[in-house]
């Protein structure tokens, strides 16, 4: 073997340097090296964090914004931040984070996400929306993308029930709410969502399941 220990070491050092130039992203080897290096690091790119909320969120700050705001957290990723209403299509509102995550809510129910790695591509929540008024049982569907880039539809048998009332305070404002719990059982996954419903039917706060790969979303309307 001509390859000395030192030259092997320098080779490793070479691979560790990052590539440069506008074409570097097209280099497959560099990509592979980056992938290997990154996969060994704690807190890798999976934890695409939503933007940090300002340290002290005040009602004055919220009122100064020209769009509606939600405070969200992706609970398993310990990521919290603010998202902004950026589009409306009928009853569905699209909320985006500044770093490119997107959440779609329909009457307070999550019907879509984008950018989380295991996204909700669509969801039928018509049964859940009527049950929000007074409880009941119904079917709910969620469309996911599977590993083969195919849409896979999951069907869940769900039950919604009112549990108790709660005085909910969100940044200097207090709402009288009723807490509803939704229990859904599917072939592969089961989940339990919670909704704080105001007197006017608005969901002020909620904890909802997104997907197996992401876990739960928590949000508050600001």
């Amino acid at each position: 073997m001509k390859t000395s220990w030192i030259s092997a070491l320098s080779a490793a050092a070479l691979l560790a340097i990052s590539s440069c130039g506008p074409l570097n992203t097209k280099n497959a080897t560099a990509g592979v090296v980056r992938g290997i290096v990154q996969s060994g690091m704690p807190g890798d790119s999976t934890a695409a964090a939503v933007v940090e909320a300002p340290p002290a969120l005040t009602r004055a700050y919220i009122d100064a914004q020209d769009t509606n705001l939600l405070r969200v957290s992706i609970i398993d990723r310990e990521a919290t931040g603010l998202i902004f209403a950026v589009g409306r299509n009928g009853e569905k509102v699209t909320w985006n984070s500044p770093d490119g995550l997107s959440f779609v809510l329909e009457g307070g129910f999550l019907v879509g996400t984008r950018g989380l790695g295991d996204d909700v591509m669509g969801s039928d929540v018509s049964g859940a929306r009527s049950a929000l008024r007074s409880g009941g049982s119904y079917l709910r569907t969620i469309d996911f993308l599977n590993g083969l880039s195919q849409i896979e539809r999951s069907v869940y048998q769900c039950e919604m029930e009112e549990t108790r009332t709660d005085e909910l305070t969100i940044v200097e404002k207090t709402y009288a709410t009723t807490i509803l719990e939704e229990t859904c059982t599917g072939e592969n996954h089961s989940f339990k969502n919670t909704y704080w419903r105001g007197v006017d039917g608005i969901v002020w706060q909620s904890r909802q399941w997104i997907s197996a790969g992401v876990g739960y979303l928590g949000y508050q309307r600001l």
């Binding site: 589009g87 997107s102 984008r114 950018g115």
Partner: peptide
């Protein structure tokens, strides 16, 4: 690992 990918969200449809 990331069936739907980590790319940023697309632009919402303008209605």
């Amino acid at each position: 690992s990331f069936p739907s990918g980590l790319e940023p969200a697309p632009m919402p449809v303008g209605v």
